[in-house]
Design a protein around this nucleic acid. Structure first.
Length: 107
DNA sequence: GCCATGGCTAGTA
DNA sequence: GCCATGGCTAGTA
């Protein structure tokens, strides 16, 4: 029986983030089994969100901010707003309101 | 093996 | 500083 790799678990988790909610790099890494592998989540997003069709835009940093810059920032912001997520003037998302809580959602 | 990568982050000066 | 991958290199058989 083959265990899933860290990367596979990360991908599965990202897939589960529901529309209108967001998750953080660190939070995803933690759920996937390694709280310190946040950068790994970023790498996965960068390398396979296109081919795997992941909802990459629903992943932001722990400060509630979009990590991308320039065009990437604009694209992500537009996609989040299209799902009803509000970003303030500084581009901050209120994690209290929008952070996905997988516990409640899976029970 | 070694090294770069990468959309991070906890914890200092 | 952290760390899971992928790619590339040296050094054996």
């Amino acid at each position: 029986m083959q265990q899933k790799t860290f990367t596979e678990r990360v991908i599965d988790i990202i897939r589960e983030i529901p529309p209108g909610k967001v998750a953080t790099y660190g939070g995803i890494a933690e759920r996937a089994g390694n709280p310190r592998a946040a950068r790994q989540v970023a790498r996965v997003l960068h390398s396979s969100s296109r081919k795997r069709g992941l909802p990459w835009h629903r992943v932001i940093n722990k400060q509630g901010r979009i990590a991308l810059k320039d065009q990437g920032y604009e694209r992500q912001k537009a996609l989040l707003e299209a799902e009803g997520i509000y970003l303030d003037l500084k581009g901050n998302v209120d994690l209290e309101e929008y952070l996905w809580n997988p516990i409640g959602g899976l029970i």
